[in-house]
Design a protein around this nucleic acid. Structure first.
Lengths: 210, 210
DNA sequence: TTTTACAAGTTGCACTTGCAACTTTTTTAT
DNA sequence: ATAAAAAAGTTGCAAGTGCAACTTGTAAAA
């Protein structure tokens, strides 16, 4: 993933911050970021440290929406923090930059090279995030766990055409990603195994039908 | 939704087309657009006419992904046409502009005002589309139809806080949007009605619990 | 090493959902 | 105005899924 400041030098970055009337906030480990920065329509960038966007379902379940690291971009338009009951917790000491979306979309900015470079970086970043969203929707649209799994495998395969698929996360997290119950998913993985469509060993899934 | 050409005059638009090495294609009613324009990584704009992005599930179900009208923006990064089995059908005679994404992300473009304005428009358009995607994900993540419906109502309510909610589409389309079986959804709407949480009359849903 | 925590694997059961096959109502086209 | 098509409304049933409550395995902390 591109950095929002790619191809910008320190001087340009400072000019950019002036132009966009940005605010920077410091947070301690475990501090709630959103509480401080919450505002109508914002774009944020992690300048230092790490954080996590999550929310608590009415039943007490915690859903992790996104892990943020240095130069991660998030915000009301750019990620799922339009949800009222979501929170952003600083995982380490951190520094977060906040830009007002309407300040960003001020036509006067276009007179400045450094702004145009910045916008261009943001454009690529959001496009990539958007593509990830659409990928997930294609999975979530499927009505049955089996179809969700097969769709997930297909998408991974189309990005890396190998029979061997290494999960980038735990099975528990896969269940969250495809939004189904963990044991129900596991049962379905077993059925796929029984039908000789896949083999599964730790985080390596072999697609026998490819 | 913003037009990708907002704040650009005809001369600037022509210069932009030269700069980005765009190609424009004409289609007759019912013609398959994707077949012609398909390429690795593209951004497309409807210049004239209407079209529809859809795909056929393995079971024969047709899923409509998006309806395109004049100045709609779509593409591999910008919408769900990374799916191999999807098709784009021209609903009227139409004209489609195709831009190579890598041509778009050529740093040399940044020297031209008209390009920067264009990028700025695209940025806003994709952000809005991205936000819509995330909205839908929040619904699809819910495991039960009842919860999906309540999430849908909540989101609509947060955008327009009125007890009266007017569906922008048919119940059938709502079922597709929240990705559940139509009759099962209807059954659940009836349960919500029985529980006196909602009233429903044609496309008007009254949220009694708000 | 031992303890503790968390992920993986397993199962029964109740409930939810998808699906097929209808009827009825509404909308669109001739 | 009539016919045709599409959407809305209804129901029974089989299959799928969520959930709770476990056991087993594995990795991290004391």
């Amino acid at each position: 993933m591109r950095s929002p400041f790619q191809d910008l030098n320190k001087l340009q970055i400072n000019k950019l911050f002036d132009l966009l009337n940005v605010h920077s906030y410091s947070f301690k480990k475990y501090e709630d970021i959103l509480q401080t920065i919450k505002s109508e329509n914002i774009v944020c960038i992690v300048l230092e440290g790490e954080a996590q966007i999550s929310y608590i379902e009415y039943n007490g379940n915690e859903i992790i929406l996104e892990n943020l690291t240095k130069f991660s971009v998030f915000g009301t338009n750019i990620s799922g923090i339009d949800n009222d009951d979501c929170e952003i917790i600083s995982k380490t000491d951190s520094e977060i930059l906040v830009i007002n979306y309407n300040d960003l979309l001020n036509p006067k900015n276009l007179n400045h090279v450094y702004f145009n470079i910045f916008l261009y970086n943001l454009f690529d970043i959001t496009n990539n995030k958007f593509r990830e969203s659409n990928k997930r929707i294609r999975i979530l649209e499927k009505k049955q766990i089996r179809d969700k799994l097969l769709e997930y495998f297909d998408i991974e395969y189309s990005e890396n055409p190998s029979k061997a698929l290494y999960l980038p996360f735990s099975l528990k997290d896969l269940a969250d990603y495809i939004a189904v119950n963990r044991s129900a998913m596991f049962r379905e993985l077993k059925h796929l195994k029984d039908d000789r469509l896949i083999e599964i060993k730790n985080r390596k899934i072999t697609l026998l039908y490819k």
